[in-house]
Design a protein around this nucleic acid. Structure first.
Lengths: 208, 208
DNA sequence: CCTCCTATCTTGACAGTGTAAGGATAAGGG
DNA sequence: CCCTTATCCTTACACTGTCAAGATAGGAGG
């Protein structure tokens, strides 16, 4: 039982241990594992020990890189906000250059992100677990907000209402779609859904 | 140590035990305690044992009434949806009778509820813990949705887009305000805030 | 009044969780 | 070559949800 059956010698000169003591890039691996965990078990079933197991390390290994579970989720949220902005930028890059089209594109990106990664979306907007007073997370979140404000300004919006309206319509659509509500709209082909979202967002823009 | 120091006899003929073995209306008390727990510690810090302690019973007492923690949260969500609808009805009762005013009133009630009871609002819309296949909860949730559809119909809306737009704008405003985002708007006096919300919702209604 | 049945609540146990403390292991610089 | 540092593991503890078994009341029927 203690010796393996004889096998052809593997090319590797040393019997490389299954898991080297040092992971190499555990921090990044834990962030990936954490988002998987979040996607599969949801925010409420999230377990730090399970994340560690996913990454192939002991349950206490994350502590050194993130402190506690809040630290891990804070780092994940910061990264999430950056990718959230990237999703908007991707839509803006292929849209018309006029301010209205740009803000519609941002809204489409907003929704794209929520549908593609609903668990991460919820971590950003509906969770109380990340530490939003953290410097890195705060900066990432502020950048996302500032992007919205800039766009509303560019469309000619001046009031608090214009800003709130643009934000709320994108956010409401994204949240409802991410949660699987709005079934009649969520089951549409992507092109039709995009067109519908664009039309709705345009209703809300400040009158030209 | 085993006998108390002599005290004046209390007026009560029998030394009434601090906690009678049977609570009397534990089910209702647990629902109240659960919402308090939710409001104070958030969905992520929610603890069934803590709820039981709040109600003054042992940690396993809730099991008989709700089965497990999911059962408790399911019942709380069902009750929440009914009060959510009641918040909308309260606004509708004091609004003009025309369909547009009614749908605006419903939106104001939507936001009222989210601001007054943000933890409960999140349980309804962003949690995965309640069992939405439960009969009672499903009926309550469907009633809330049906109310919206009826209102959109009454305003002349026919398309999926009209329905989605009306829902999303109320939901987006409510969610952002409940989460404490939209600070510039959340810090407004109530009357001004209501006026702003009304104006935003009216932008989205199907053109008359 | 007495008995029994049922609903209600408690106690005790177990596996799983997050976190802290201390030890093991590698990597690199002196 | 040694020693420092970063990284990861093991162990332990308090807390959580759930289950099983027992204790307690209330009420229905004799």
């Amino acid at each position: 039982m203690s010796n393996d059956p004889p096998r052809l010698r593997t090319p590797s000169p040393l019997p490389v241990p299954a898991r080297p003591y040092h992971h190499g890039d555990l921090r990044a691996a834990l962030l990936v594992a954490a988002e998987q965990e979040l996607a599969e078990r949801g925010m409420e079933g999230f377990s730090l020990r399970s994340v560690a197991k996913r990454a192939g390390v002991s349950h206490a290994a994350p502590a050194h890189h993130f402190g506690d579970v809040q630290g891990l989720l804070t780092a994940l949220a910061a990264e999430g906000f950056r990718e959230f902005l990237a999703a908007q930028a991707a839509r803006e890059a292929v849209a018309e250059a006029d301010p209205a089209s740009q803000i519609v594109a941002a809204g489409l990106g907003y929704v794209d992100f929520a549908i593609a990664r609903p668990a991460l979306f919820r971590l950003l907007w509906q969770s109380e677990r990340p530490d939003f007073s953290d410097a890195d997370l705060g900066q990432a979140a502020r950048a996302a907000y500032q992007h919205l404000v800039d766009q509303v300004m560019a469309t000619g919006g001046r009031s608090t209402a214009d800003e709130a309206a643009a934000w709320a319509i994108s956010h409401g659509l994204a949240d409802l779609l991410a949660a699987g509500r709005l079934k009649s709209m969520g089951s549409l082909p992507v092109a039709a859904r995009d067109a519908m979202i664009s039309g709705i967002i345009r209703r809300i823009l400040p009158d030209a």
